[in-house]
Nucleic acid binder design. Sequence first.
DNA 1: AAATAAAGGTTCACTATTTGAACCACTATT
DNA 2: AATAGTGGTTCAAATAGTGAACCTTTATTT
Lengths: 252, 252
Amino acid sequence: MSTVGKAASLLELFTMAEPEIGLSELARRAGLDKATARRLLVALAAHRLIEQEPASRRYRLGAGLSRLARIRDANFPFARIAAPVMKDLAAATGETAHLSEFSAGALLTVHVELSAKANRVNVNAGQILPLHGTASGLAFLAFSRSAVTEAYLDKPLERFTTHTLTDRANLADQVRLAAERGYSRSAQGYEDGVHSIAAPILGADGHALGALSIASPLSRVDDATAAVQAGAVMAAAREIAARLTGEPLPAP
Amino acid sequence: MSTVGKAASLLELFTMAEPEIGLSELARRAGLDKATARRLLVALAAHRLIEQEPASRRYRLGAGLSRLARIRDANFPFARIAAPVMKDLAAATGETAHLSEFSAGALLTVHVELSAKANRVNVNAGQILPLHGTASGLAFLAFSRSAVTEAYLDKPLERFTTHTLTDRANLADQVRLAAERGYSRSAQGYEDGVHSIAAPILGADGHALGALSIASPLSRVDDATAAVQAGAVMAAAREIAARLTGEPLPAP
DNA sequence: AAATAAAGGTTCACTATTTGAACCACTATT
DNA sequence: AATAGTGGTTCAAATAGTGAACCTTTATTT
């Protein structure tokens, strides 16, 4: 492994549960010699990626990481990180993929990858989606903090089509089902002739930040294609979440 | 320079203004060969510290940084980072140093380093300080967002001693003076017999997160010692801010 | 449409950086 | 006072890093 890789591995040893670690322990866990580990730590410390508690001499993650993360987070929002994954999803399913972010009580569409087919569902970036009546909304509600979900369920629910879920009990059932399955399904709840399957995008705390959805003309979807779409949309949503929150890569 | 140092230097080339950079440009600015720069970038990317935009092939900071910064920020609050600097400050001035953080409209004392002298000012961690009437509060107001400062000035101001500033115009003058000087001074505004000099702790956006203060028995302070304390408290406050926000170290 | 200049990326002989066993100095148990 | 654990240092040996020269692609200029 490269020296840089070893140094990065040292950083990855720190966790929420164990945010300070001594030299010997670090070397042992990283599988490095103590001298090597120390040299790497000193190099990292010179750039504030690591700092050492003066009293205990233990090491911890440095303030430089906060600074760099600020730069990243300010410049690479949701939509930009998700776009390449969504392009693949739209290509693989042949249908329109759209991503939405929770904001002020509703979902805001932040990115769309249109299907290549002539007969397709069109969604515009910037469009506001209600939490009931869209698959995206159901997926989001199913993985929100329960306080948020319940507050929403208690409000009156507007009807958009003859299929819109406006009954609290029915909606709660659908939310429960989505929470169980990991994805939601909705047909014509917001617009006639449109079928959608959606999965939540989960933040670092396990709650939904938004949702990813595949929208198809109703005529093109049966239960078998819906199952395929559900698998694809969940995998893509997990991938986007991983790219956002930076879960460490599985060992090679 | 060590390989790890070179890799860290690459990370430091990314800024708010320029969050994506191409390979040649990175190599040029870091003073590295293109082949070397790329090898380092690939190693960093393997740990999500860097990622590459598939379309433009330009590089940017990776999601792993967000994750590591979350771990750090969750575990090392203000008080812990500031403690060593405050210990030095208390030792150098011979007076009690206390640190406060803005929270819910007032300053909350989060750490105290007591003077070694028998005759000293005692402050307790957890103590709530009003924004008017303490040097810490003045320093904080002087470097808050103007909306916050003005909202506070418009509220009625409680009197604690005969010296408390309760007049809006007087208080506004003191705040303006503190903003000019970079530090604030207050005698007996909150407790009789206590003199304080404070400086703001500035966050990454340039606004105050809290304040650092030196409190002395009034009898021990004249203008000359106050000037010395002002210099020391401003330097310490800057040092704490740097340790919190991770400004890059000056080149060696 | 051909020519130029810049980009990203790759190769491989050379060499400088990294490595780790053995070493202190110190502290807490036994 | 003996033992076993820290954190930290040294230097000959070995490995990992380097960079000039190369290729391919893309954008700009003539």
